[in-house]
Amino acid sequence: MYAQLVDTGAKRVQSLEELSPEDRAFQERIDAGVKIEAKDPMPESYRRTLVRQISQHAHSEIVGMLPEGNWITRAPTLKRKAILLAKVQDEGGHGLYLYSAAETLGVSRDQMIADLHAGKAKYSSIFNYPTLSWADVGCIGWLVDGAAIINQIPLCRCSYGPYARAMVRVCKEESFHQRQGYDIMLALARGTAEQKAMAQEAFNRWWWPALAMQGPPDKDSVHSAQSMAWKIKLFSNDELRQKWLDQTVPQAHYLGLTVPDPDLAWNDETGHWEHGPIDWDEFYRVIKGDGPCNRDRLRARVKAWEDGAWVREAAVAHAEKRAARERVKAA
């Protein structure tokens, strides 16, 4: 999802009996539903995993501003422009609270950003796809933010207090984002033949990446099991994907869109939609850096950071001068 393939450092989940006394006490607190706070003792692997997960999530919010920001200057009406600006601004705000939540674990925002720029930290694979038409902005809100909500609502109950509280705020805004995306698609679906074609074309491109974004199937996911034991992941990738699929297929049909999966079928017995095979090679390829936009996204972030260095230095220098003057005045 926004945090994909988070490495927990675990080869398999250890049973309570196998854990050291401290780790066992920690696991028992988690099992009892106690929230872990910044100053509480925690295993180093739990702390490191959370830093990876929360910082990946924060980076996804910040990098995610780029594909949608790409259409702010070209939004088709003033109202759409205002809504999109507000939406992208919210994403930046989410990045800020998440960096703050990660900072409670003893890592600075600058360090996290340096890791992103050095290619050491990841962000969601989904933002390595391009926004080629206005309908892509609709698809990101509807499909991608829709998937994000499904993943993030449970995280409001995760074991780490600062992360859980940040997610409460994030989730409230994400549901507005999803509605704005769907509303863009609805206007296109009711529009001219060209607008309908624009909607279908974008949907064709976003469907599979959005379906894959919850991460690989449960059977291939060692780290998921450890994260679930720690309650920093509450549902498995396949469960989250199923929820998204069941929610999204009827919405696509309502919009008059054709789902680009010939194997998509309703299963009367289970009461769920079933999808055809996902191209996991593509998923891993994009994560490893060969998606259509990986290089551009990272380059854009690094450029913004480097171009802004003199501004940040000036702000620090000015604050120091001002503090020095205050000291002289006080003396």
């Binding site: 003033l78 800020l96 913004a304």
Partner: peptide, 29 residues
């Protein structure tokens, strides 16, 4: 100001720039 989205020197200024743009679009409308 909308052209700055995602490119400001620091995230706080990205937000402030977007906020100013939003106010101005509201006034323009």
């Amino acid at each position: 100001l909308g052209e700055w989205t995602g490119k400001a020197p620091i995230i706080e200024e990205d937000l402030a720039t977007a906020n100013t743009a939003l106010d101005l679009i509201g006034q323009a409308r």
